[in-house]
């Protein structure tokens, strides 16, 4: 022993660190990533590499040369952003488009606000929405999964897209729904962006995060609840015009968004109460956009809109303080 250490209490600390939490998120995303590799093949692998690589590289370069601060790539948040971004675009997207997405996500949505912890919106979602409005052709040309070893890419639209289109042309939901089955949606194989294909893989990751106590379930559950309830009401009133709750829960990016994007620490409320309000808001807005908006899918927009009111939610919905009303 040489010099005694002296510090204020507590003297022990939990093993969590920003890096370990982010690593857990990466691990939780792995099943979905592997699924997307299997279903979409080499294109998807390349896309993932470009997305993660450019996110990490951009963060390193910007923090080092523009912000002149110690690099923050060690916390793995850029890796998470990269994976989420790649899972959020169709596998047919060209590599340079996803690079632009990464640039927007990391440089504009995250670092220009001061880096991890300071951003208002989920970086991957900002990147995705930017691409969606800038390159609609690439972002809405969905392809039927072709498989790691398969050929014959079939270009088509997502179930949500097909139904939106169909309804606008006057068809009823029942007619359009004939081509899809719920088990197909649950186990994969419907047209969509990479992360929308296998609900089970995403849910497995979500359960992993819950077990590791990285996130709490309230936000995700309240999104599911709000989506189910809102669509149940509309579907109950007019089943020919509106899709049913199960379809709404299983299609599109809802599961990816609810499990991994809405639960992002930085851009979600701190308290459980706030989280539930946040989740209900996302669920409600998602269904509204799907039913009445001009885009077939609304999860990204719904999350971004609710991200912007998080500071207010943090102010309004506080945990009950001990011994106070």
């Amino acid at each position: 022993m040489n010099k005694l250490l002296v510090s204020p209490s507590p003297h022990i600390h939990s093993k969590d660190s920003t890096k370990s939490l982010m690593l857990d998120v990466v691990i939780a995303l792995l099943p979905a990533v592997l699924c997307s590799f299997v279903f979409y093949g080499w294109n998807e692998i390349l896309l993932m590499l470009v997305s993660v690589g450019s996110c990490v590289l951009l963060e390193w370069a910007v923090t080092k040369y523009l912000m002149k601060k110690p690099s923050t790539i060690g916390d793995l948040s850029a890796v998470v952003t990269g994976i989420l971004l790649a899972l959020n675009v169709p596998y047919t997207t060209p590599w340079w488009v996803i690079f632009i997405g990464a640039l927007v996500a990391v440089c504009i949505a995250k670092l220009s606000f001061g880096g991890l912890g300071q951003n208002i919106w989920n970086p991957a979602l900002v990147g995705r929405v930017f691409l969606l409005v800038s390159f609609p052709t690439y972002m809405t040309t969905w392809s039927q999964p072709q498989g790691l070893f398969g050929a014959d890419a079939v270009t088509g639209a997502t179930p949500l897209g097909v139904i939106k289109e169909g309804i606008m042309q006057g068809a009823t939901v029942q007619d359009l729904m004939g081509q899809y089955s719920y088990s197909q949606m649950l186990f994969a194989n419907l047209g969509g962006s990479a992360g929308e294909v296998c609900a089970l893989a995403l849910l497995a990751g979500f359960v992993y995060l819950l077990c590791r106590r990285v996130i709490k379930p309230w936000i995700t559950l309240s999104i599911f609840g709000a989506v189910a309830l809102t669509s149940l009401i509309f579907w109950g009133i007019h089943p020919a015009r509106f899709t049913d709750p199960v379809f709404n829960l299983l299609t599109g990016g809802l599961i990816l968004g609810a499990c991994f994007m809405a639960t992002d620490y930085v851009t979600s409320p701190m308290s459980t109460k706030g989280g539930i309000v946040f989740g209900v808001g996302i669920g409600f807005l998602t269904v509204m956009i799907r039913y009445f908006g001009s885009y077939p899918e609304g999860v990204s927009f719904a999350i971004l809109i609710m991200n912007s009111v998080v500071p207010l939610l943090n102010m309004w919905f506080k945990q009950k303080k001990f011994g106070r009303k």
């Binding site: 250490l5 510090s7 600390h13 948040s77 880096g115 991890l116 300071q118 620490y265 701190m270 106070r324």
Partner: peptide, 30 residues
């Protein structure tokens, strides 16, 4: 008696607004 590894504080990083402190506070503070 605690060893260096058990007790030395790790370098501080940015708050990621995870809310773990608020969840842990037994007085319900933030």
């Amino acid at each position: 008696f605690l060893t260096e590894a058990q007790t030395r504080r790790k370098p501080q990083t940015r708050c990621i607004r995870c809310g773990k402190c608020a969840d842990a506070c037994p007085m319900g503070l933030e």
